[in-house]
Amino acid sequence: MRGTNPAEGRAGDAGNLGGVPARDASAALTQEVEIDLFQGPFDLLLTLLLRDEVDLLELPLADLVEEAVTPATDERWEIDAASQLVLLLAAIADLKGRRMLGEEVEDEPDADALAMREALVGRLVAYAPFQRAALWLADRLRAAERPRYRRVPPGTATPVPVHDDPARLSAAIDRMVVAPPAPSLAHMGVVRRPLPELLVRLRDSLARLREVSFDRIVADCDRLEEALTLLAALELVRRGEAELRQDVPFGDILITGTRA
């Protein structure tokens, strides 16, 4: 048995264990406190403090803490309630500390903060129905997971549409088992003439003729071969074996051998 001593229940046991109901987070805020300065629910005290209707400097903090953490019943603490309470008390202690040291504390949040808070309230209000709908769905789920359905008919694998024409079924299967046509690799562009071969060919031409027209030697070549031929020509220029001349931009290129 646990939780016979309220203090023990509070110290180590935040969750809802055992049969004793836990306090939810809002219980921390609505709990009544009774100190010299104030008597009423905790959240009202906070509101009054925020509005400066209760003087923070007069607030007996130790009494408040004692009052706040002494539960009215032997309910267990729920972790959210406990942490919310600790945070609030810490915030009040911090504010009071600042006041005592004479530090400025903004009494009213600025307009931006207020607008942001309003926007957040709007969003939370708009979203709340979906959160509740989710709880409703969770209930539905619990109720719906009890009945069982006949999911696997004994002895049958896939239902066969018996009223269908067997010939049509067979034709449909035939279409599915035909091998698809082999993919074409035509676009892969096999390099038929490697660069060294083109170099030899170009040298041969230059040996026979003084001047070779680029357009003419690539007349029956595809684009890749044309590009490679141009590379071969440039390679000859680099080696000092040929010169290139192009009279008109994009016109024919004349390749002239430099070796007699």
Binding site: L29, D43, T47, L87, A91, L95, R117, L124, V125, A128
Partner: peptide, 15 residues
């Protein structure tokens, strides 16, 4: 109540 909770949260955030 939701708005009030947020006001309290602001108090904490300020601190």
């Amino acid at each position: 109540a939701l708005r009030a909770r947020l006001e309290h949260a602001d108090l904490i955030a300020e601190a």
